[in-house]
Amino acid sequence: MMIRLLRGVYGIWLREVMRAMRDRGQMVGGISRPLIWLLVLGIGLNPYFRGEVYGEVRFVVPYTYVQFLFPAVIILNIMYTSILFAVSVIWDRQFGFLREVLVSPMPSWLVLFGKILGGSTVATMHGSIVLILARFADITFTVTQGLTAIGLMFLLSFGLTSFGVILANRVRSFEGFGVFSNTIILPLYFTSSSIFPLDPALSRSQTSVVYPEWLVMAIQVNPITYAVDSLRGVLLGFNQFPAHIGPAVMGTMAVVFFIIALWDFRRP
């Protein structure tokens, strides 16, 4: 019985992964984002953050701007793939695939688990592809660091894919979902200390002198901030926040969002 259930989960997972791998449009999105963000934005802004006088730089963090941006671009790729994966839930609902699967002997939570696992695998793949650009960003990491980063990517992907399913259950048309995802992905990304650093050497009141209080607050309550920070910790060896917060936030997101997605999924 157990084996049959696992084969069912495997079947759903395989369907999602195969479909994503064969979708050239999705694959193009997966490479165009890192190329634009790292090659164009990273190089474009790099001169503004480089040193001109020893001891006087605006960007007092132990890496270059392209290195700083690199982990954030991985997260951006994961966010788009994970959240937009939920379009497939709307698709499956509209074309009857979900109905067929839900009348099978598999429990509905396993059906959802298989789908989310598939989406998470695809999102992790899209995040991992960015690691190939590490040479360009002048980042070196060991196999252990690489595997840890991929593990963290998967944890985040699982949480965000579940989050996407929650959104898909509330927005039931393709058009509505497109607007919704853009109003969520980009604000979450820009307020995650992804493209500008909060100087960890500064206290809260000092930071508020550099940035307005509302922006600092938005960054600190945004869970993606801690995902970006966690990946920076693994790949660059530098954290703006205590290192344990990132994995804890991502783990909590994965569990809580999956439970809410399951709750929604079981509703008629």
């Binding site: 791998m21 064969r22 694959m27 997966g30 490479i31 650009l133």
Partner: peptide, 17 residues
């Protein structure tokens, strides 16, 4: 598909920064 995008990104990683 994966091989093609990997190749494109790998080639891009050799651009001077």
């Amino acid at each position: 598909n994966i091989a093609v995008i990997t190749l494109i990104i790998f080639a891009a990683s050799f651009l001077p920064s």
